[in-house]
């Protein structure tokens, strides 16, 4: 028997550690996937198959000399990576990582906070995430950093609109803004309670959402804020040591959280097919469900990396055209088409 509060604290600590762990191993996975796609071997020196590479990288980041430019605004220079890291970690609170566990007669949901408007909270966190980049880029007092920061802010605002519009159809049809309810509605089974994943009903919305998630995470093909061929290192040109590490880490955490949100909204979250027909205990289903959730997340992280080595970077005007002239009208059309067809074929 554990109290509600103890359970929540354990869950917060677990999600925090797992998030950092996944982010750390995403850096390793990124290099391994890149190596695989380019027919190389990749990191293989630290430990078997280079499995200790993230540890070595982390140690290197901490041990490196830290340089804060004299001309920079010192307080904001330090604040930038802190905000980036903090906002990246905040969104994990809302994700339902699994169903419910029953321990000693008490039922616990594997979700830190259940909010009536969970998706909107995620959007709010995403929308303030850009401050880390903007403040860091401006405080560096470097033209390249400033250009990177400005690109990041313009890009994020543009794609936030399309992202927000892309989920309207989903929200209208599921009738809820709560992430746990959206996952629960996609629970799989056979016969009477067969529910398809939302991606079946909202293929276009899902596509737009994924594209916008790429842009929000500053991942290729939308990594213009740190476009190294034009801007040296973009917004983190002046950063060194662990502060740079924080920026890079925040990007991987964002990727992890985006993958989790994509799986929750469109790919069934912790649900898996035939989950109610196996005759298993509820606790067992929850544990398998959590594993399935992480498998889906892992797939989407791989997908992010796969795209990185497949599609070249956009030009900045192409990025803006795609955001404003293609994705936003498509998202609006998606709302009309989906809702109209729902009303007709209901």
């Amino acid at each position: 028997m554990i109290t509600f509060l103890t359970f929540k604290i354990i869950l917060v600590a677990l999600v925090f550690v797992i998030t950092l762990l996944v982010a750390a191993y995403s850096t390793y996975a990124e290099r391994k996937v890149a190596a695989f796609l380019q027919d190389r071997i990749g990191p293989n020196r630290a430990g078997p198959f280079g499995i200790l590479q993230p540890l070595a990288d982390g140690l290197k980041f901490i041990m490196k000399e830290e340089i804060i430019p004299v001309v920079s605004n010192k307080f904001l220079f330090i604040l930038g990576p802190c905000i980036a890291m903090m906002t990246a970690l905040m969104a994990g609170v809302l994700i339902p990582w699994g169903g419910t566990l029953t321990i000693g007669g008490e039922t616990y949901a594997l979700q830190i906070a259940e909010l009536d408007n969970g998706i909107l909270y995620v959007f709010a966190v995403v929308s303030i995430g850009v401050y880390g980049i903007m403040i860091g880029g401006w405080a560096s007092n470097n033209k390249f950093s400033l250009l990177g920061a400005i690109r990041a802010s313009a890009q994020m605002i543009s794609y936030e609109i399309a992202m927000g519009l892309s989920i309207i159809a989903l929200v209208a049809i599921t009738g809820t803004l709560s992430l746990s309810e959206i996952s629960a509605q996609q629970a799989g089974g056979t016969g009477g309670d067969w529910n398809f994943w939302n991606v079946v009903y909202h293929p276009l919305g899902c596509l737009i959402f994924i594209i916008c998630a790429f842009a929000e995470c500053n991942r290729t093909p939308f990594d213009l804020p740190e476009c190294e061929t034009e801007l040296v290192g973009g917004y983190h040109t002046e950063y060194s040591s662990m502060k740079l590490g924080f920026y890079l880490f925040a990007e991987y955490i964002n990727m992890f959280i985006s993958s989790a949100v994509i799986s929750t909204l469109y790919f069934g979250g912790y649900n898996f097919p035939f989950m109610n027909d196996l005759g298993l205990d509820q606790n067992m289903i929850t544990i398998i469900g959590t594993v399935v959730m992480f498998a889906k997340v892992a797939f989407f992280i791989f997908f992010f990396m796969w795209i990185r080595w497949t599609i070249p970077r956009f030009r900045y005007d192409q990025l803006m055209n795609l955001g404003w002239k293609i994705l936003i009208p498509l998202a609006v059309a998606n709302v009309f088409i989906t809702v109209a067809s729902y009303l007709i074929f209901k």
Partner: peptide
């Protein structure tokens, strides 16, 4: 998330 980012953008 949106309006102040634009403010900051213009001021920068």
């Amino acid at each position: 998330g949106a309006i102040m980012v634009l403010f900051l953008y213009v001021i920068m």
